[in-house]
Amino acid sequence: MAVSRHKDAVAPVRTRGPVSIWFGRHGSTAAASFRKLVRQPFSTLMIVGVIAITLAIPSVLHLMVKNALAISGGWDDALDFSVFLEDDVSLEEAGSVRDLILQRADVASVTLVGRDEALAEFREQSGFGAALDQLDGNPLPHTLVVRPGALNTPETIGLLREELTNLPETAAVQVDTDWVQRFHAILAIVDQSIGIGAALLGLAILVIIGNTIRLDVENRRDEIEVVKLIGASDGFVRRPFLWSGLLYGFLGGVLAVLLVHLGVFLLDEPVTRLAGLYRGNVELLRLSLEESALVIGGGAALGLVGSWFAASRRMRAIEPG
């Protein structure tokens, strides 16, 4: 009798399979962490709000660059080529070159600027009149201003440029897209700086969440001590804090995306009106699905990492004894 009662008294706990344990624990811990956040709506909202703003700043800047690129991208093909002809090309020959180029399907218009005309214009606009008088003759060539057609792609523009350069009468071809390219280069640098700024702000989120979790761990010091006494592993103790951090980051990311969308929505109308005054149909780009997912996922990941470091560091210091 004693033996059978002994067996009954000392029985190992029947546990579920490891996968079932994993899901069961995480499910209940996640639910508990979420309830905890809901129970303290004000502090949760503050932390989530700070994270959201921190995430929204680089998102908004990136969106600005994206829109600037999209709007200025349309300027490329509207730009003119300046085809400088050889010095020995006469005005009549220049006229026939113009007619030749005009026959091309990818060219919208060609304007001939004679060298005398150009000199007069230059004299008037540059203020170097006196200096020009010192010169023996007119140093300027005849110039053809070629405007490509609207249907050109960057490739056909390149081809057009090459063929204009290869004309026997051509001395040089200058494309006035250089400043657009510079502008794009500047935008690319700005976009990269935003990346660096975003990394710094990500660090700030790590600190915010880390500090929140650190305080949380400190507040639950007694509880941690007790569960460690009755055999809880570090992983078990850490789990609720990881979920809290993950939820903070995730909710912050969702709120950030909502804020950015709201901002675009508010700006859309005035921008459209402004664009209407110039060239019409400009539509502001929004955050794409991928970008939104990146913001939310990034927030969640930062929350997880921040809470991991904070919880692991603080927990180790809390030992029963």
């Binding site: 546990t15 490891p18 079932s20 069961g24 569960v227 009755i230 809880a232 078990f236």
Partner: peptide, 29 residues
């Protein structure tokens, strides 16, 4: 323990069940 070391933010049932949850027992067990 002399000072019980109970967790006062949860009911008796949850306090007693804590070692089982730590060990990974299912809800029925």
């Amino acid at each position: 323990f002399q000072d019980h070391k109970l967790l006062y933010d949860r009911p008796v049932f949850d306090n007693v069940g804590l070692p089982l949850i730590i060990a990974g027992a299912g809800p029925r067990e």
